[in-house]
Design a protein around this nucleic acid. Structure first.
Length: 268
DNA sequence: ATGTCATCGCGTCGATGA
């Protein structure tokens, strides 16, 4: 008798409409139960809902024109729990970067899934970098509240943070980049130190296991990549973690995103 | 050193973000 299992993925698609054939092909190939998408680059009305539903997935969408935008796809029952991050002062994040849902897993389990697209933060010395750090602080506050629920919680997304020097090809080349700043990496560590587990590090941890390769300067053929797409798991989710897969070949396909999907398998 | 890609606007290219 097999135990109830859940395969959850994160995929920064860099425009869901430009990537639709690629996305559908990967869904058919990998068959994930839940998928967190980032950088939709479209408003809710332009989200390709029919094609996604025809593939067997319901979708909740937090879209935005031109930039950002996140969605969660699920072939299990799903209920939206939050759109956007709370600011604490009544303000709303003007950028669509956060979406949270409750997923019902066979066997009576509920898994809370947060899809997030952390700010890039470049260039340094601008309000963009300040916004990145503020956003991570706000996320930390929200996650503290979620951890108190003591539920299986999966934070999945494009974190725009390179955790270790081994998570890039040439650390020196990233020294002046927001993704590799000490403040950015400290924000990631602070979040994990609340009691979360980096899923990839827990089951693999290999050096140079990249999830993103820039379109420019032949980054893909030179394997000049970075690991920035991560899963952070609550203790209840980490206990269920079986494996993590980085879908590297997807980067080499026609009209590829600059990110590849990453999936995690949980067994309850 | 960027050898790129996607979107928008009033447009057949430049600006912007990544």
């Amino acid at each position: 008798m097999t135990q109830p299992a859940l395969t959850i993925a994160t995929f920064n698609v860099n425009s869901v409409n430009a990537r639709l054939p690629n996305l559908l092909a990967w869904l058919a190939e990998a068959g994930p139960d839940v998928v967190c998408l980032q950088e939709l680059k479209c408003e809710d009305a332009k989200f390709p809902r029919e094609a996604i539903e025809d593939a067997g997935y319901s979708a909740i969408v937090h879209g935005q024109k031109t930039y950002n935008g996140v969605a969660i796809l699920s072939r299990l029952p799903m209920e939206e729990a939050r759109r956007g991050l709370p600011l604490g002062d009544g303000e709303e994040d003007p950028q669509a970067r956060y979406l949270e849902a409750e997923i019902s897993v066979p066997g009576g389990w509920m898994v809370r899934v947060a899809c997030l697209y952390c700010p890039n933060g470049n260039p340094l010395g601008t309000d963009k970098f300040a916004y990145k750090l503020r956003w991570m602080e706000r996320l930390q506050g929200h996650v503290q509240g979620l951890l108190a629920l003591e539920e299986p919680l999966v934070l999945a997304g494009d974190w725009n943070i390179i955790p270790r020097p081994e998570d890039c090809h040439d650390p020196a080349a990233w020294a002046g980049d927001a993704l590799f700043q000490p403040e950015s990496r400290a924000a990631w560590r602070r979040l994990l130190n609340l009691g979360l587990t980096d899923a990839f590090m827990a089951v693999d941890g290999a050096a140079h296991a990249y999830t993103f390769w820039d379109y420019q300067a032949g980054a893909w053929p030179k394997d000049n990549g970075i690991r920035i797409d991560h899963f952070a798991l609550s203790p209840q989710a980490a206990d269920a973690l079986e494996s993590v897969q980085i879908w590297r070949p997807v980067r080499g396909r026609e009209k590829a995103s600059d990110h590849v999907p990453v999936s995690a398998r949980l067994s309850f």
